[in-house]
């Protein structure tokens, strides 16, 4: 993370990431359709999508930054701000809620040191957010830690799970 305006933006689309972007073009009839995958590439490379990144994506895909921002903000999985080193999503929708998901969410918030849903722990290690149905309702409570999809999480399992993510 850099303070705004102090460090010049290092281009994201260079080397491997640029090669991945270019490999996407032939899959779609136009450049605009590459927008969602391009934003995923940005998030994989930088952890979030900054204003500079929005401008860079817009430039690459012949779109305007405001168009890109309009699409970016529609989709909840793109981070519009930096988040903790490990990003935790916990489902609390009815089927999971009926089976104890709210206790899991509370325990995650407490043990991660985040203090509140949506907040990042002071050591920058975790961000915990509540999400709607993760499509694994038979295995309450499913959580995502980064890209790891973990099922049947109970409050008791939380400390051990968090310990795996230094």
């Amino acid at each position: 993370m850099t303070a705004h305006g102090t460090t010049p933006h290092q281009p994201i689309f260079a080397g491997d990431v640029l090669a991945k972007l270019e490999a996407l073009y032939p899959k779609y009839p136009d450049k605009r359709s590459v927008l969602l995958p391009a934003l995923w590439l940005v998030q994989e490379a930088r952890g979030w999508v900054s204003d500079d990144a929005v401008r860079e994506v817009a430039e690459r895909l012949d779109l305007t930054p405001s168009y890109v921002r309009g699409v970016l903000t529609f989709y909840t999985m793109y981070h519009k701000h930096p988040v903790g080193r490990h990003f935790i999503q916990v489902c609390t929708t009815s089927p999971c809620g009926m089976c104890g998901a709210e206790d899991v969410a509370r325990t995650l918030v407490e043990h991660s040191g985040c203090g509140d849903l949506g907040a990042t722990s002071p050591d920058g290690r975790f961000t915990v957010i509540e999400v709607e149905c993760l499509g694994a309702c038979g295995f309450p409570t499913p959580i995502l830690i980064d890209d790891d999809f973990i099922e049947s999480v109970t409050p008791e399992r939380v400390p051990e799970l968090l310990a795996r993510y230094p």
Partner: peptide, 27 residues
């Protein structure tokens, strides 16, 4: 065949929203 990854939006399961989403638009 191309796999297109969504980015968090239940509404993109609605067929025309999905088409917009593949086209790089809001869903």
């Amino acid at each position: 065949m191309v796999i297109h990854r969504g980015a968090g939006a239940y509404i993109c399961g609605e067929e025309t929203a999905m088409m917009n989403s593949i086209e790089g638009r809001r869903g």
